[in-house]
Computed example of a mutant assay.
Amino acid sequence: MTLSICTLGFGRADHLANLVHGLNRQDTRPAELVVAVMQAEPYRLPDTAFPVRQIMLDAADLPLAAARNAAARAASSDRLVFLDIDCIPDPGFVTDYAERLGEWDAVLMGEVLYLPKGATETGVDFARFEALGEKHSERAGPPTQPTGVCRDYRCFWSLNFAMRRDRFLALGGFDERYRGYGGEDTDFGRTLANAGVPILWARGARAFHQYHTHHMPPVHHVDSVLANARRFRDKWGEWTMQHWLRAFVLMGLIERRGDDYAVLRAPDPEDLALTAQQSHRPYASSARVLEMLEARQPAIASSYAAA
């Protein structure tokens, strides 16, 4: 068996270059890197000892689901690893996934540690990354055994996962009706659960997430989050991303109307400041913001919970 690395590209050229540097230092060489490019121009990348292919896509509406599917279809290997452009794989990354996928016809989710601002300024230094990297407080830690069962499909996370290509294609990949930010991950997790495909946490297969400013909850994507949450409701009969929707209600961006929501206004500078990642933290936290919002507006929080 061979192993293809699939990633998506929209900006962040320096991050992608670091991902490639990480792949160049693998204990086991990947068969290839496939980049689904969601911008007008391909990337200029470091030299590699393995093939790199860039698949150019229509970038309208940030087609994350379609881009992952395109990368998977273009891949030549029978095992796929999906790794976000922001991540740097540690030297054992390919070996760990290759071994686990030899044992399991399942979805495997490797470890992720978040790097603070400035961690990559001196290049790819794994000893430095190990010392600085932090686990996300809202994600499960690595299992004590090589693999551990994830019993809640909502925990599926496309940032760093692997599975056999034939299984991915048989499931139909990600639902391409999801456009823009949000929802396609949880939808794919639900598809896996319905098909009886195990979702496993993998010990190892570690990636280091590079710092970049972002917002959690993603207020700058409120329109696509709400549209994709509706798609999930229409498909599965229930809402997803409810913690984000709850935060948007508390911020006055949307309001609940029956079994739907309506957008009230666009986010303003105060909303963006509240949800922005702080430079002294390696990652943003939806839970931290939601806790602050609930403390400020307990009456609205209580009425939302009762709805």
Rank of each mutant, 00 (worst) to 15 (best):
G196I: 08
G110F: 03
H221A: 15
L113G: 08
S224Q: 04
Q210M: 14
C150T: 10
P217K: 09
K135S: 09
L62Q: 09
D125R: 13
A131M: 01
H214M: 11
T2P: 03
P89G: 03
A193T: 00
V81R: 00
N160I: 11
V219N: 05
D166W: 13
P198W: 05
V35P: 00
Q277H: 10
E291R: 15
Y43A: 06
A193C: 09
R281A: 14
R73E: 15
A205L: 02
L33A: 07
M109C: 12
F248C: 06
H15K: 09
A287L: 13
F168R: 05
I88G: 00
A106V: 02
P298W: 10
D27F: 06
R151M: 06
A106G: 08
A66N: 08
V263Q: 13
R25Q: 14
F208Q: 01
D125H: 10
N194K: 13
E32L: 07
L108A: 06
E134M: 10
A36M: 02
P142T: 05
L274K: 03
D14I: 03
D78Q: 12
N69E: 11
Q210A: 12
S76A: 15
T191A: 14
R206C: 09
F161N: 08
R79F: 00
A67M: 05
D187C: 11
H212M: 12
A36Q: 04
R177A: 11
L290F: 12
A17I: 01
Q278T: 14
R233T: 04
K235N: 05
W157E: 08
A247P: 00
R206L: 14
P198M: 11
G11T: 10
D78R: 10
L171A: 07
L113N: 00
E184G: 01
S303E: 15
R154M: 14
A70E: 03
H212S: 13
G118A: 03
T7H: 05
V37W: 02
C155S: 13
A207C: 14
R246E: 15
M241W: 00
A193R: 07
E103H: 14
E32I: 07
L62G: 00
L192W: 02
D234Q: 15
H215W: 11
L108I: 09
T2H: 06
T122K: 13
S4Q: 09
K117N: 10
L8C: 06
D234Y: 06
E184W: 05
G189W: 03
I254H: 01
P63G: 09
E255F: 02
G189P: 05
A193K: 02
Q145R: 15
Y114D: 11
A98G: 09
Q210V: 10
Q26E: 07
E294I: 12
L192A: 09
Q278M: 12
P30W: 08
R164K: 15
M241R: 12
L23N: 04
A305F: 10
D61T: 10
P89D: 01
D187M: 03
L253I: 11
V94M: 05
D96F: 01
D268G: 14
P282Q: 07
D271C: 15
F174L: 11
R100D: 04
A72D: 07
